[in-house]
Simulated assay, not measured.
Amino acid sequence: MTDRTAYLELIRELVNGDAEAYRERCAELDEKGWDELGIVVGAAFFLAARQRRVTFQDNAAIIRYVADTRAEMADTSFDLDPAVAEKLLAATTTGDTDELDGVDPNLIIESEMLLLWKLLRPLSADELSRFLAEVDSLSAQWAEEE
């Protein structure tokens, strides 16, 4: 069984805005490896977006959400590719991932992480812990299916 704790904690540190812990975790993962990061982040994004899917009822709502997210990041060193972010959110409501074919997998992971920052911030510490336990379970399931 794979230990996904470092990936899950990376998400927690991102959501909590703990820049120091996030940098330390990235350094740890640089040494250990990032092998299953895509699966874990993908599972987290899938679950978080599905829980909020009513927010993404149509393209206009998705565009507004991405614009709001980008505006909140204005004073950070991060930026979100709006076209990729919109395609990711649309895919969670339609199940159609064809629009993401040909998009760099690293850009998808980066976009999912930045969207997770916004999607998960409203959660309490306990809610985030329960959410990450769900992510771990879904990640394990997805890893077995690969």
Rank of each mutant, 00 (worst) to 15 (best):
P82L: 04
Q57E: 07
I39T: 11
W34A: 04
S111C: 02
L8A: 05
A61Q: 10
T69Y: 10
N106K: 09
G42H: 02
D58W: 02
Q57L: 07
L37S: 06
A19I: 08
A27Y: 11
A83I: 14
V40F: 01
L10I: 03
L47Y: 00
V15H: 02
L88I: 07
Q57M: 04
N16M: 02
M73E: 13
T55P: 00
Q57R: 14
R70A: 15
W117H: 12
E86Q: 14
N59R: 11
S77C: 01
I109H: 09
N106H: 09
M73C: 04
A90W: 05
L115K: 00
T69L: 13
E13D: 14
R53K: 15
T55D: 14
E99T: 11
L88Y: 00
R52L: 12
D68V: 01
T94Y: 15
L88R: 01
D81R: 06
L114R: 08
E86V: 06
E127I: 08
Q57P: 02
E28Q: 14
T93F: 04
I62S: 00
Q51V: 02
A91E: 07
T94Q: 12
V66M: 04
C26M: 12
K32V: 14
L119Y: 01
T76G: 03
V66T: 11
N59F: 09
N106W: 12
A21F: 03
T76W: 01
E24L: 13
A74I: 10
S124I: 10
E36R: 10
D126P: 06
I63T: 14
V40Y: 04
R52S: 11
T92N: 14
N106S: 09
L47C: 04
V40H: 06
R12M: 02
L89N: 08
S129L: 09
R52I: 02
E31H: 12
T76H: 03
T55K: 07
L123V: 01
R23M: 07
L120S: 04
R23Q: 13
G17T: 09
R50T: 11
A90R: 13
G42D: 06
V40M: 08
G38R: 06
R52G: 07
E112L: 01
N59E: 11
A27F: 09
I62A: 00
A43C: 13
A67T: 13
L114K: 04
M113Y: 05
V103H: 03
D68I: 08
A60C: 01
A49I: 06
N106L: 15
S77T: 11
L115Q: 06
K32A: 15
E112W: 03
D18C: 07
M113D: 00
M113T: 08
